[in-house]
Computed example of a mutant assay.
Amino acid sequence: MMNKLETRIVSHPTDWTPLAQQRAFRSIVDAFSYPGRIVKLETQAAHVLPIVLATLADPATLLADPCELVDAADRQRLGAKSASADQARFVVMPGSQAPDFEPALGTLDSPEKGATLILIADEIGQGSGLILSGPGIQSSTSLQVTGIDPQWWKLRRKWNSAFPLGVDVALLGEHSVVALPRTIKVAAEGGR
């Protein structure tokens, strides 16, 4: 298991090919269409973060990487503009680190300008832990995620309390992504 705060996450050259990015895009859309579903991403890199960013970010994107998880060469390839975590469209953070910022929540005229938080988890799997409910989930589903500070869930609830304003979350494991749009309710098993 890599220590997310000490190791930068590096891409594989194939992450920058159109075919790889098209496949990743379809998988990411699938993850957001089926919240809570664990979706595998194809990459030869050790982690999916670079292919996710290569797929979603471009030179017009404001990207915050306060813990410098993204390798400098990958950052240059992305061409995304650096921004503070409170202004960025995408914020990359280790899930184990509690947030010390308030992300962009969008406006009533432009709720789509709310940030997408990309949280690096230690492991993502089926099983007990979190109970997810909301649009795209029949009744509810359980998700086991390790390496996410519980403060993220408390603040996410606060940030998303004035819907349609809020943030979307993408949880990244080494080879998978789980999407939690702002419409999804997240509760710890046992009701906490």
Rank of each mutant, 00 (worst) to 15 (best):
L5N: 13
E6R: 12
V10K: 11
V10Y: 01
S11L: 03
D15M: 08
L19D: 11
A20F: 05
Q22D: 06
F25A: 04
F25N: 05
R26K: 05
I28G: 04
V29M: 10
D30G: 04
P35N: 02
G36P: 07
T43P: 00
T43A: 01
A45H: 10
A46V: 09
H47P: 01
L49D: 05
I51H: 04
V52R: 07
A54N: 13
T55H: 08
L56T: 00
T61H: 11
L62H: 10
L62R: 14
A64R: 09
A64Q: 07
D65A: 10
D71A: 15
A72Y: 09
A73F: 09
D74A: 03
R75Y: 07
Q76K: 15
L78R: 12
K81S: 06
S82A: 14
S84P: 03
R89F: 06
R89T: 14
F90Q: 03
M93W: 13
P94L: 01
P94W: 01
P94N: 02
P99V: 09
P99M: 07
F101A: 03
F101M: 11
P103M: 02
P103H: 01
A104C: 05
L105A: 00
T107V: 04
D109L: 14
S110D: 11
S110N: 12
E112P: 01
K113Q: 15
A121Q: 09
I124S: 03
G125I: 06
G127V: 13
G129V: 15
L130M: 09
L130P: 08
S133H: 11
S133V: 07
G136Y: 08
I137G: 04
S139T: 14
S139C: 06
T141K: 14
T141D: 05
S142V: 00
L143Q: 11
L143S: 05
Q144W: 10
I148R: 02
Q151I: 13
W153P: 10
K154A: 04
K154D: 09
R157T: 13
R157H: 14
R157D: 10
W159Y: 08
G166H: 09
V167D: 03
D168W: 11
V169H: 05
A170Y: 00
A170S: 13
L171A: 01
H175V: 08
S176N: 13
S176R: 06
V178P: 11
A179D: 03
I184M: 11
K185E: 15
G190W: 15
G190N: 11
